[in-house]
Nucleic acid binder design. Structure first.
Lengths: 345, 345
DNA sequence: GCGCGTATCCAAAGCGGTTTGGAATATCCG
DNA sequence: CGGATATTCCAAACCGCTTTGGATACGCGC
């Protein structure tokens, strides 16, 4: 353990009060003393004890990220890693700590209560919101600043969130495919209770309707976004009497699966069959270059993490600043995986 | 904020002392009182303030995970997410908090000093060790319990770690390929300064030597483990005058890239060319089924996270318990991506 | 009835900081 | 030079909990 304020003060022949004020930039201390104190602090490698400080000030200087992992489908969404990397950068710059909680969604409510009652953190980041997410109501009631990465429907109370424009993205992507003459377009989506999945489906359905294409339930898939899910889906759908000529994938991982499933059957992407995927710009799955492999709706989840952290810190600093919201637009990036619908034989 | 101990005590007509002892199971309190206190605590949704508690006890009840992210190669290793999910499960079961630090490796040393001097955590988990990692020495000197996920060479002081047997895994995998008649085996490895990459290369080299195959530097690749890296490598190596008939990949992501690179050239895995990959059992990249897609050296990184957390908690509980080490063996799982070396035309 | 052990509870002193309300010294001004 | 005003520092209370060292009351044996 390090030096305490008291020890430092004693070694300088000063009171703890003065040392505290000198280090925290209060005006009631002479410039000479402040300099002397600061130098001594560095020399002694003095760092104020976090717990004591936050007990005294009432601020925890920490943000919790609560990551739901249900026992049923134990998938850790790979976007968390990049989102958290972005947020962490902001936190350390602001002297905040990031507390991570992996929580089974069965006792999730208890986890939030606990976190707030114990005063462990000043704010909460909510991950993976579902369509009707009770956490928003719970956290509002608990009166702790929080920000949702994504949104949830059917909640009347206002709340702070950051999200990408899922609906518009998938609308555009679908529209783009329609303009290329595709009429059988499959939607390979995430779990149906996730809010983002619903919004993407809405965008998809609206674009189909605008193009006068009746939606086909067989072409709309929902599941955990793994690579084999993409593979399986491609292999299944291609056997349909009237198979899709284009696919919309909800993540790069799924898109890789689709691609593998299709190319195993000798299909050439962008000629025989088209794929558009959402691309979170995960660092180990870059979809870049002059002509990216996939045509994609692109948005950096790492950047979202940065902004989310900034917004949440603002909410913590001034709780009255009302609900903050940010809707990030995605860019539709043209890659090698799309082309006009093949002319029917 | 919740109820305080003092308030709870006042509402019961008891002293804070007695309430504290009642809740923490001390014997100096009557069964009747204890029952009364516990019930009141639940009714009032009382949770002891973490900061006050740990200030009083001197234990932070928290573990730091420090994740290095260098500005040069900003990759967030996808295994972190699953490792952390495993560790987090153990922590919450033991009432510990997980503090995450994303740290630029330039000021990494400062981050550890800070963390310890401030008393923010009781223990530190070290991620992504390099071959000569100075962090081990630093943390030993700071006198904080720590555990390395992986190992580092050339450190004389003993330290605690958990690792998979990288060398043995890649030895076995290489040997397996040799027995199938392969003599041109590429190693598509991670960054060369990472400790795991060195150990895997050693295993590979030893197996080659045992089989009487001189190593070819051209076939040994090192880079950040992205999918395009695998793709590019496959496309490059196949153009060699004497191209490899088998590949060893350091991760599923890289293996996917290799597979894509090869199948784009019309290669059939397991017949024309073989691939063995290391498989961390990432939840969104399952390599399972009756016949997994890839023959793989398999080891669950999530399980490693669990065990690592348990070990670190043990170190924190009894610092004298000496360095704890665990070497996890991998299993070599036969999949569809390997077969005998093709007979030369 | 007295002394003593035991059961039960409490007052007060920390833990390491911040912050309020002075006190002591220096500075200024008429 | 005396009093008002800054300037500079400090003692002590407090944040919410644990824990030491009693205090009180009770039961028991002699």
């Amino acid at each position: 353990m390090g030096v305490t304020l008291k020890q430092l003060a004693a070694s300088l022949g000063l009171s703890p009060t003065t040392v505290s004020r000198a280090l925290n930039g209060f005006p009631e201390v002479s410039a000479a003393t402040r300099k002397r104190v600061k130098e001594a602090a560095i020399r002694a490698n003095y760092h104020p004890n976090t717990r004591a400080k936050s007990l005294a000030t009432g601020r925890a200087q920490a943000i919790a990220h609560v990551i739901p992992v249900s026992t049923s489908h134990e998938i850790v969404n790979p976007v968390f890693a990049d989102f958290i990397a972005g947020a962490g950068e902001i936190y350390s710059r602001s002297g905040f700590e990031m507390v991570l909680r992996i929580v089974d969604d069965a006792d999730e409510s208890q986890a939030y209560r606990d976190l707030v009652a114990r005063g462990t953190v000043d704010g909460v980041m909510v991950h993976g919101p579902r369509t009707h997410d009770r956490r928003v109501e719970l956290l509002s009631r608990l009166g702790v600043p929080f920000l949702v990465h994504g949104r949830t429907s059917d909640v009347n109370a206002p709340y702070s969130w950051i999200d990408i424009n899922n609906q518009r993205s998938f609308h555009r992507a679908t529209q783009f495919l329609c303009e290329f003459g595709h009429r059988r377009i499959a939607l390979v989506n995430g779990m149906s209770d996730m809010d983002f999945a619903v919004r993407r489906r809405n965008g998809y359905l609206q674009a189909l309707e605008a193009a006068g294409i009746p939606p086909d339930p067989v072409l709309m898939r929902h599941a955990e976004m793994t690579e084999p899910y993409g593979y399986r889906t491609a292999q299944e759908l291609i056997q349909l009497p009237d198979p899709p000529t284009a696919y919309l994938a909800s993540s790069m991982i799924v898109a890789y699966g689709l691609r593998r499933g299709l190319s195993d059957l000798g299909v050439t992407l962008g000629r025989d069959i088209s794929i558009i995927t959402h691309d979170d710009e995960l660092s180990y799955l870059p979809n870049d270059g002059d002509v990216p492999m996939f045509t994609a709706t692109r948005s950096s989840v790492r950047e979202a993490g940065k902004r989310a952290a900034q917004m949440l810190l603002k909410l913590v600093a001034s709780p009255g600043s009302g609900p903050l919201t940010e809707l990030m637009e995605t860019s539709l990036v043209l890659g090698a995986s799309t082309g006009p619908a093949p002319v029917r034989g």
